[in-house]
Write a protein that binds this DNA or RNA. Structure first.
Lengths: 219, 219
DNA sequence: GAATAGTGTAGTCATTGCCTACATCCGTCT
DNA sequence: AGACGGATGTAGGCAATGACTACACTATTC
């Protein structure tokens, strides 16, 4: 009411339009900047320019927002891995590409990697999240099985093969994002080390392809 | 004053005596129970039976308390690894024992492993903490170098060898404590898988000792 | 154009970390 | 012994937060 020469050209829409998505993006940004522990719903609302109660219309509580963020993270992570796993002449090569992608995605999207690894902040039992994690896991799992079927690595049963390679990629990304590696060892080409580490794991069945340069770019 | 038949046999000393240590223990317990994110100084004070301001006498703020907790965690972690690294006929065997110990310690002391891996909650630059981390790192690093010197693993330069084995142990512990492995794969003998995974990494220079049973107990 | 569900606002409450003023205890010096 | 002072614990206050509630504005549908 009262259209009396209000000088706001832009009427600042009462309804935001796509607050939900904007909140998720802002949350990812904030997590990357100030860290997951410092994330505040009210600060998020201020950042986006809505009242402190507005987020509640889209997420019943903070945990729900973070669950949605974790789900989104997983979807993108999985998409990146699946794409990486399409290139390569052999199943082993494709699995290796997925491993490198795992580390690279984590480094390039620290907020996404962060949230997924901190189930105390979200509901890991959430249905959409679980479904996403299952797809994520299947992508890795199938590639691992194909690699092993094609070329051996007889020392490990399939489960142990998958878990140990997964763990190595996960550990590399984690220690890198911690700052632990840089603090203790100094600057390190983490992707090169990852590539070489995978070679060693695979070397027990195949002759390790000696990595001379920095194979950090495979895309 | 007023010793008028107060029926408190235990006078509830005004001075607690060793509040600092009790707080750290209670914090570790709370982290293991409710998680690091849910830790509250006031709840901690209530649990221990002091006023909400008392912890401030020992830790200027929450971060300081968690830094102390992380430092304690690291000391114990390092002691466990050093002890594990004393047994074994060869340097390779001793390093393998350290790797198994890494995973075992994390599983048995989830709160300690948790806090160290979450530098957003404490001051990684703290002097005592840094010193502790350096010792922790040196313990691993020296054992890795000895193992490699003694028996090869030529495919990897020493840095990559250390980082990739460390990452595998770290990743196994992390994924296990996440609940990720159990959620996706079901019950798993994580220590057996760890032992076999380490064998594979070492297999490129040495013939892998085939692990038949569950080598989860090496102490 | 009125009903109705969806979305944003504004105010309240308990809890939290941190700060300050005060109380109590303990060791030390005389 | 007794006074003093530093160390340690208490009590109350403050701003910020997550969650809740009552209300306002908008869009859609009949």
């Amino acid at each position: 009411m009262s259209t009396l020469f209000v000088d706001e050209e832009i009427p600042v829409a009462y309804h935001h339009g796509n607050l939900r998505e904007v909140l998720l993006d802002a949350a990812a940004e904030a997590v990357e900047g100030e860290g997951l522990a410092a994330l505040s719903l009210r600060a998020l609302a201020r950042k986006v320019g809505v009242s402190h109660g507005a987020p509640a219309r889209h997420f019943p509580d903070k945990t729900a927002l973070l669950t949605a963020l974790a789900t989104e993270a997983l979807d993108r992570f999985q998409a990146a891995m699946r794409e990486a796993g399409e290139k390569g002449d052999s199943a082993l090569e494709r699995y290796r590409a997925i491993g490198r992608c795992y580390v690279r995605f984590a480094i390039e999207n620290p907020a996404y990697f962060h949230i997924v690894g901190r189930p105390e902040f979200y509901s890991a039992g959430d249905e959409a999240f679980s479904r996403g994690y299952q797809e994520f896991f299947d992508t890795m799992s199938e590639a691992a099985a194909a690699a092993q079927r094609e070329s051996g690595v007889q020392e490990l049963d399939p489960q142990a093969f998958l878990i140990s390679t997964w763990a190595m990629a996960h550990g590399l990304a984690t220690l890198w994002l911690d700052g632990t590696l840089e603090d203790r060892i100094g600057p390190v080409d983490i992707e090169a080390i990852a590539a070489r580490a995978f070679d060693v794991v695979f070397a027990s069945s195949q002759s390790a392809t000696p990595v001379t340069g920095a194979p950090s770019g495979d895309s």
